[in-house]
Amino acid sequence: MTVTEKEVSRQILQLSGANANLCIRCGRCTAACPVAGQMDQKPHRFASLLLHGQADTLLRSNSIWLCLSCMACSERCPRGVDPARLVEGVRQYAVRPRGMAHFSPDQVPDVVDDEMPQQALMAALRKYRK
């Protein structure tokens, strides 16, 4: 059975633990984000696209890989929506199915150098794969 996009959106909202209904579409998240310029789906669109059942747009976007989880959006959101959690929800949904990892341990030798802290690899493995 295929899951509808609307159902996927609902599941992501639940997974995120954030309450997107609090959003008043003010755009402070996009204004605060250090990488919004490169995102094809800006942070402010996450709440409304998920509420409107359009998760596919977000699952296909580069935004979920660009997001740094720096929490600037969540810190400055006047509504306490916690947009970083919404992005995390989409990202988790994207990487959890088998074979959908964005980054694999096989790539480590290519990216690592002498000084790269373990922390970087650990974080990337946590963020980009399940």
């Binding site: 690899l121 974080a123 963020k127």
Partner: peptide, 12 residues
Amino acid sequence: ECCGGYRVVDDA
């Protein structure tokens, strides 16, 4: 403001 964080692994 963020330094780029773990992104360095994916896209330095």
